[in-house]
Design a binder for these strands. Structure first.
Length: 352
DNA sequence: AAGGCGGGGTG
DNA sequence: CACCCAGCCTT
């Protein structure tokens, strides 16, 4: 309890003013926690405000189209979160009469809600004494108590969860959970933590043994594969553009993009013959828009991307709509697209 | 148990 | 360049 008390003391004088901390509504807590998964506060904040404005209640979110949800989510990444968010909103609206489950155990049943998020909602909205264990908590506990079990090993996950729940202030689970995460985020940071003015300097194993740099221990490194993307932007005489919806599993599922050739090796020309359903295009009518490929890095992919343009002198065959979206030039902004595409559109304003 | 899944920020 | 972020889901 000494640890918890010191932590809460620190929190009372150092905490940031964040909008979701003013709410105890499960809907608002849930929304914030989904957005904050693997995402820093600064990045999630504008999205949180935007979503709450568009969808004040879970019913409003449930009524929306997935395309609209994804469009609002555009740029935040990990788009399965947005799809699960929408699924769960419909689930809550329809099967839970609009009210979120009130216990950790039942919150875990919701799609997109894992152990961390269930503990966060249970403690923040319902005062249930469950310790959150996120990246901040791993870092703080491994350093203060000198735990070098890899945080992403089965053993480590178990061990840190036990430790976190032992330390939890069971009378103030909400404040305690906020406090330990805030402490990890702004004091016990990954790089250059503020050990000089740390309330735990006297007991911190990592500080006393100069192990700040090596704790927490983490296994694994994701292997990054290189891919070559070639996008074909086809425009007809009426300023329509063809978009493809990514339906398969994989990156950017359910987002839109131009016609894509995805290869493991660099190619010279756009491979028109690979596509069954396109208008008749002669390769001499294809123009490369960026001679230097755009480099776009994801967690496990390194993409080199080129954009090609075709302007047709006739209108698209309406039959194309069975395979692609035929989109008016000025409606391009209504579609959820990867940041990569968004950046390109902004840069090369395709003239009308 | 391991791998897939974004985008932005830091040193 | 490597590593991290209020993780979760699938295989």
């Amino acid at each position: 309890m000494q640890f918890a008390k010191a932590l809460i003391n620190w929190y009372n004088t150092h905490q940031r003013d964040l909008p979701w901390r003013h709410s105890t509504q499960a809907y608002e807590i849930w929304l914030s926690e989904i957005m904050l998964q693997q995402t820093q506060v600064k990045q999630a904040l504008p999205y949180y405000l935007k979503f709450l404005k568009h969808f004040p209640t879970v019913h409003d979110l449930a009524k929306a189209d997935e395309d609209q949800v994804l469009k609002l989510w555009q740029g935040l990444g990990y788009y399965s979160r947005a799809r699960n968010l929408h699924f769960t909103a419909k689930d809550i609206s329809k099967n839970y009469n609009g009210s979120f489950p009130t216990t950790y155990k039942n919150l875990l049943q919701l799609k997109g809600v894992g152990e961390y998020t269930a503990a966060a909602i249970a403690s923040f909205a319902f005062n249930e004494p469950k310790a959150v264990v996120d990246g901040n908590v791993y870092r703080v506990l491994s350093r203060v108590f000198g735990i070098d079990t890899p945080i992403n090993s089965t053993e480590g996950i178990k061990q840190f969860k036990i430790k976190a729940n032992e330390l939890l202030d069971r009378k103030n689970p909400a404040t305690y959970n906020q406090a330990i995460m805030e402490f990890g985020a702004i004091q016990c940071k990954p790089k250059q933590p503020n050990c000089l003015f740390c309330p735990f300097q006297n007991i911190c194993v990592a500080f006393q043994q100069s192990k700040i740099e090596v704790l927490p221990v983490k296994l694994k490194k994701t292997k990054v594969k290189t891919r070559y993307f070639n996008y074909l932007i086809i425009e007809d005489e009426r300023e329509n553009i063809l978009l493809n919806k990514r339906n398969q599993k994989g990156i950017w599922q359910n987002l839109y993009e131009f016609i894509l050739s995805d290869t493991t090796k660099q190619i010279d020309d756009f491979p028109l013959d690979k596509f069954q359903y396109l208008p008749k295009i002669k390769s001499k009518d294809i123009r490369l828009l960026n001679s230097t490929p755009i480099k776009h890095v994801l967690t496990h992919r390194k993409l080199f991307v080129r954009f090609w343009q075709v302007k047709l002198s006739e209108a698209f065959d309406p039959q194309l709509a069975e395979h692609y979206e035929i989109v008016k030039h000025d409606q391009l902004n209504d579609y959820a697209v990867p940041v990569l595409i968004e950046n390109f559109i902004k840069q090369y304003v395709l003239r009308a």
